[in-house]
Structure formats: C-alpha cells, structure tokens
Design a binder for these strands. Structure first.
Length: 439
RNA sequence: GCGAUCGUAGCUCAGUUGGUUAGAGCGCCGGUUUGUGGUACCGGAGGUCGGGGGUUCGAGACCCCUCGAUCGCCCCA
C-alpha cells in the first residue's frame, strides 16, 4: 500500500456549509454585477511573468518571493496569476478593447500567491473582481464603489463592515507627499520600529499603517496628503465623496490608507471588518491610472476592486440559504427502479428537486431522505407496482396516501406551500388576510 | 523568511508526576420494528496515538529531527 499524497500547503478542499457559502457569494456577485451592467470576462490563469513583474515593479520582493513562477518547456518564465488586474490590463491592450471604452468588466476565479497560510489567507484562493477601464472621471469610482456596497448588503454582511476611503492624489501630489513623508520619518529614524526603518528605504508610505506602537506617535503628526493635493486632485476626490453621499454609500476618511505600488493614483479604498483577525480587509481597490503604461500600452485611466471569496464566505457563515429539496423517491427494492427513474424525470421536468434513494434497507433510505430535509417521500414497492400507483408520504406531518404517479406533483406543490407558510410564520412576517393557511 | 500553540477513532476531544489489553460523546453499521424517517433502549465495527530517531525495565506522555495544521509577524498586488 502506497501513501496517499497530501494536498498542497495552502490549498483547500471545500465542502458542505462552506461550499454553500462560497457558491452563495459567487451567485450574489453575478447577480449584482449584472445590475450595474458589468460584462463578464474570462481570463487565463497564467501569463508571462513579465505581465506581473512589470506592473508590480521589479523592486518589491513580491516578485521575487511571493509569486508562483516556473519555466515552461520553451524556457519561458510563466506565472500563475497572483491578481486579476495585470492580466486584464494586458488583455485590454493586446485585444484592442480601447474600442469599448469605457469598459466595465467583472470576473472571478482562483489566484495564487506563495505565502504562509493563516486565517483567511491561502496559497490558492479565490477572488471576485470588477474593473472600469478607460474611464478617468470620478463617476466611475462612484459606480464601482456603489456596486461593492450593494454586494456586501446583498450578502447580508454590511453590518460591522466600513468603507475606508482615501486619495493618493495625482502623480505630482503623490510624489510631493511621499518626499515630505520620507523627510519627516528620516528625522526620527532611530525611534522607529526596526520594520519601519526598513520601510523608510523600500516603501515609506507603508509606515503609515504600521501596527507597531512605537511608530504611532510619529504617524500621527506625519504630513497629510491633503496638504499636497493639487486643486485638480482635490476636485476629483470631492466629486467622488459627493457622488458616494448621493448614492447612499457610507464611508469614512482614512488618511493612513495607502497603496504600495507606484501606479496607483487618486482614490484608494478598503471595506474593513474587525471580525476576521489580522486579515480585516474584505474588499479593496483603487484607481490605477499608471498601470497600462508600465505594460507598454497607451496611458489609460482605470479603477477596480477585488474581494476574497473565502473571507466573504466566512462572514456569510450559515446565512447562505439552504438548498430546497422537494422529493425523495424510494424504490423498496430494485424492482421499483424503472418507476423511480420515470417519475424522477417528470418531476424534474417541472423543476422539482428530486433524489432517488436506491441503496440500503428501506429504513435507511427513509432516514437519509428525512435527514436530507426532503419535503415528501415517494415509496415504490411490490404492491404499488402491481396497482400502478405510488405511496406519497409527507415527511413533515407524516400523512401518507396511495396515488397515481401523475398526481404526485400536485401533492408536492401542496407540501411546498405548507413549507412556505411555516417559514413565513417562523420569520414573524404576518400573512396577508386573503391567505387561508388551511387551504 | 520569523515566532507561538497544536497533531490520540470518520468528527470533537479525554488520557492524572512515564506503568499492563488506549477511553468518551457524536457519526457509522446491526437489532428491538420481515414494506416506512424524526424519539428511546441494546449491541457492533473502527486507532501502526502524524512520521523517524533517542532516553528508559517500560513512552500516547520526556528529548531531538521531520511533516502537517492553526494563529500572529513580515508582506499584502
């Protein structure tokens, strides 16, 4: 006997309630995305390494340490996508999607990052993604955020999640602010945490969201982006916030919210919760007007966001609606299989959820049907076959009758109504008085 | 890359300062009920104690290594 290979570290086999929550997140996203008329796109899972390396910038250790890269048989360096945006930007340029600008697109699927797994963090994980390409006006930011906001509400997890909003200004504002920050922190360099001293060289903006208490005082009186914003950048941010207010999207200003990569401009945002430990960001994004150029394309303004499906699913928890289960067909032995298949076919054609239980003892079959939450069980035994009938049992009240197969769907419809009434009553919503619960 | 905690039945866990045949609950299978679920009672199967090495008369417990998991740091596109 050989040993069973283990799953790769940081990958997950999702089943049961978690899988239901996962599917609920994706289905809700698909529904909401259509409301806002974002078009569905499908993207390759891997690209030439340079697609990600050039867009992210060679400097960071993201490229060297955090990507799944490998050489293919032609000695070409390929990389499993660690994000959607770079690949979408590449597609926009190579396929001439400029002709569709402004283009609203959405997709979802697996991404890969070579990281240490922890809560809500995996090496293969899944994201929802939405982008508006070729749109430089603040209204694009507003619509993108309005969609994100509605998505979280539709998922039922908006409580306890807040939208943190900031602006990084245009290119000049951003550079001026950055220079001022470096000067400010250089002055107190020795008193910063070791990590932040290193950030000062590599990525000074990141000092602003340091978790180390030693950095906090210096972060508090650090130069603010607002003092460096050009009038145009100020207007842009003002238009975004005014638009959000008009659209009924609640937001909080967070001047410490930054993006490490240089191609980000203007709006940066994160929907944050305190319910997921160290991984509190549930959905994040921003405007990346500088990205297309770094990939060799024409200057193209764009905004987008991504959200981790696993994290959303964790917040959704048990809230995902249970799958309906209408009919369990139970032949008492193999002699009833033909009748079972035939009845299943006609019931499913009417969109009833049907499962046939054809293994184990009768008792076992009934128990499994009950456990699975079937509304009614249809029993097919020797007597039924001889009479050309079936036995229909309501698994909620135990009522049972012998009927012709053609009459089953009517009984199922009744059971569905009764179920609906029970749920309505349970949820505390009063019935309109023209409904007679006993009908 | 760094740190902490953990790894005993399918699942959740117990296992006293190392001491004979390793336990419970749930689940699973069977029976009380030869064609009927949800309750109850009775019985049964199931474990190389993550893996390797060491200390000891004796290791699930102690030591080392290794693999894995969880949480955090770094990073976060």
């Amino acid at each position: 006997m050989s040993k069973t290979p283990q799953a790769i570290r940081g990958t997950q086999d999702i089943f049961g309630a978690e899988a239901e929550a996962f599917a609920f997140v994706v289905e809700t996203f698909e529904r909401v995305r259509k409301l806002y008329r974002f078009r569905r796109i499908e993207m390759p899972v891997f690209e030439r390494t340079e697609v990600f390396a050039r867009s992210i910038g060679e400097t960071t250790d993201i490229v060297s340490k955090e990507m799944y890269s490998f050489l293919d048989r032609g000695d070409e360096s390929l990389t499993l996508r660690p994000e959607f945006t770079a690949g979408i930007a590449r597609a926009y340029i190579t396929n001439g999607w400029q002709q569709h600008a402004p283009l609203k697109v959405a997709t979802h699927g697996p991404l890969f990052r070579y990281e240490r797994p922890q809560k809500g963090r995996y090496r293969q994980f899944h994201q929802l993604d939405a982008e508006i390409l070729g749109a430089g006006e603040p209204q694009a930011d507003v619509e993108l955020l309005a969609m994100a906001d509605q998505l979280l509400k539709e998922l039922g997890i908006a409580d306890g999640v807040t939208l943190n909003l900031n602006t990084l200004g245009d290119g000049d504002s951003r550079e001026a602010w950055r220079a001022a920050l470096v000067e400010h922190f250089r002055g107190v360099r020795g008193e910063l945490s070791e990590d932040s001293q290193e950030r000062l060289e590599k990525n000074p903006l990141r000092i602003l969201d340091s978790k180390d208490p030693r950095d906090r005082a210096f972060v508090a009186d650090a130069p603010k982006i607002d003092d460096f914003l050009s009038p145009q950048a100020q207007d842009f941010f003002g238009a975004v916030t005014a638009g959000l207010d008009a659209a009924g999207v609640a937001w909080e200003r967070n001047p410490a919210l930054v993006r490490g990569l240089d191609y980000y401009r203007h709006t940066a945002f994160e929907f944050v919760t305190d319910r997921l430990g160290a991984q509190g960001t549930v959905l994040g994004g921003g405007r990346y007007d500088g990205l297309m150029e770094s990939l060799g394309g024409p200057a193209t303004p764009a905004v987008g966001w991504a959200a981790g499906i696993e994290r959303l699913a964790m917040l959704v928890g048990e809230r995902a609606p249970q799958e309906r289960f209408d009919v369990a067909i139970i032949p008492m032995d193999d002699a009833g299989l033909a009748q079972a298949n035939s009845l299943a076919r006609s019931l499913r054609a009417e969109w009833n959820n049907v499962e046939i239980y054809a293994t184990g003892k009768l008792k076992k079959r009934m128990a499994r049907a009950n456990e699975a939450g079937a509304l009614v069980a249809v029993l097919i035994g020797e007597d039924e076959i001889a009479a050309g009938e079936v036995t229909v049992r309501d698994l909620h009240d135990g009522e049972q009758a012998r009927v012709a197969p053609a009459d089953v769907s009517g009984i199922v419809a009744k059971a569905q109504n009764a179920q609906w009434l029970r749920q309505t009553e349970h949820s505390g919503i009063g019935l309109p008085d023209w409904i007679d619960p006993d009908a």
